Simulated assay, not measured.
Amino acid sequence: MAGCKNLIGTFMLQIIVLALFSLHAEGQGLKVGFYKKSCPQAEGIVSKVISDVMAVAPSLSGPLLRMHFHDCFIRGCDGSILLDSPKGQTEKFSPPNLSLRGFNVIDRVKLALEKACPGVVSCADIVALVARDVTVATKGPHWKVETGRRDGKVSLITDPINPVTGLPSFTSNITVLKQSWSLRGLSTKDLVVLSGGHTIGMSHCSSFEERLYNFTGKGNNGDTDPTMDQNYVARLKLKCKPQDKTTIVELDPGSFKTFDDSYYKLVTKRRGLLQSDAALLNDPETRAYMIKSTSHGSTFFKDFGVSMVNMGRIGVLTGSQGEIRKVCTKTN
C-alpha cells in the first residue's frame, strides 16, 4: 500500500512539474532581432551555412527541423539535445533521438558564429534558426524567429523516455498527443500544424512495422492496421520486411524533399505512415484542419510559422539563466 502511495505521489509531482513547465511557455525575454546590435550578421551567417549544406545534403532538412522539436519538448528550448557526455548519458543518446542527424551542421554554424561574434549567440537559438532556414531551403514558409534563448547545463538520457514528461511516441493515440502538447502550453491546432512538418524527412521501417505485420500484437504476419489504405500497405511491405531495422521510407512519398501540404492529402487518404499521423483523423478539430489543408483555402504555410514560434517559447532560459556555450556539445 505504501508503495502504491509513493507511486501516486511521484506521478502527481511530475504532473505539477509539467504544469509549472507549461506556465513558462510564454517565451518571456525573447524577441525578433535580439542580436541586432551584438551580432548583426548572425542570421545571415546561419542562412549561408544552411544554404551551403542543403545544396549538397538536402536529406538533412527533416532531421534538423525535428531536432528543434526534440529539444523544446524536453527541458524547453535550451539546446540540451546537443550535449555530449563521456559515457553517452545525455538526451542525444536516448532511443527517440538516435535517428536524429545533422549535429555536425549545428557545430558548423556555431563555429562560424564564434568566429564572427565570440560568446554571443546561443546554441539553443542556433537550433531554432536552423529549423526555419531548412524549411525555407525546401520551399517552405519563412517566419521571424524570436531569439534570446540561453543554453541549459543539464541533459539526461532518461528524460526523453520518461512516461509522463518524455517525447510523445510515433505510436501515440490522439488523446496522448493532445495531452503532450497541452502540458507544454501548445494547442490542438499547434499539434496538427506542427505534424505537417512530416512533409519532409524519412522514417525507419521499425517505426511502423507493427502496422504492417503485427497490429494487434498477436504475432500474425497478416495482421495489418485496418485503418491504413491497403494498397499503401502492399507497397510498404515491398520495402519493409519483418524485423527490418535499417531501411528508411519517405514520410511524404513523391515530395519528401519539398515542404508542401501534400502530407495532409496523404493522411486524409489513410496513407499516413506513422500511427501518430493517422491519429490526427480521430479528433474533430485536427481532422477538420487536415481537410481544409487539402483545399485552395489552406493556411498551412502561415500557420506553420506561428506554431513554430509558439513551440520555440517553451521553457526558455533568458537573461542571466543558463549560459552561452562556446561549443554546443559541452557546457562551459
Rank of each mutant, 00 (worst) to 15 (best):
Arg287Pro: 07
Val192Tyr: 02
Gln179Trp: 14
Val233Pro: 02
Val56Thr: 12
Gln41Ser: 12
Val306Asn: 12
Leu274Ser: 03
Lys218Cys: 09
Val17Arg: 14
Leu280Val: 08
Ser51Gly: 14
Ser180Arg: 07
Thr171Tyr: 07
Ser94Asp: 09
Thr10Tyr: 09
Pro168Thr: 13
Ser169His: 08
Phe73Ala: 01
Leu60His: 02
Arg66Lys: 14
Ile248Phe: 06
Glu323Trp: 05
Thr329Asp: 08
Val164Arg: 01
Asp261Trp: 00
Asp260Ala: 11
Gly29Phe: 11
Glu146Gln: 15
Tyr232His: 10
Ala116Asp: 07
Gly322Val: 01
Val154Glu: 12
Val267Ile: 13
Ala112Gln: 14
Thr224Arg: 01
Lys36Trp: 01
Ser99Gly: 05
Lys144Gly: 06
Asp84Ala: 03
Gly148Asn: 13
Lys110Phe: 03
Val105Lys: 04
Ser207Gly: 06
Val17Asn: 03
Ser85Phe: 05
Pro253Val: 10
Ser172Tyr: 06
Gly3Thr: 11
Arg132Tyr: 09
Asp133Cys: 05
Thr331Met: 00
Val32Glu: 14
Lys37Phe: 05
Ile161Leu: 14
Ser22Gly: 06
Leu273Ser: 02
Val306Cys: 00
Gly185Lys: 08
Thr199Trp: 02
Asp229Met: 08
Leu65Arg: 07
Asn6Trp: 02
Thr10Asn: 14
Val121Trp: 04
Lys326Gly: 10
His70Asp: 15
Ala128Asn: 07
Lys36Val: 10
Met12Asp: 10
Ile16Glu: 04
Leu20His: 10
His68Asp: 03
Gly9Pro: 05
Ala234Thr: 15
Phe208Leu: 11
Phe301Ile: 00
Gln321Val: 01
Gly33Trp: 04
Leu177Lys: 04
Arg313Tyr: 05
Leu167Lys: 05
Phe11Gln: 13
Ser94Val: 05
Gly219Gln: 12
Phe215Leu: 09
Gly62Lys: 00
Gly140Ile: 02
Met202Ala: 04
His296Gly: 06
Ser255Cys: 15
Ile291Asp: 08
Tyr232Leu: 09
Gln89Asp: 11
Lys37Tyr: 11
Pro40Ser: 09
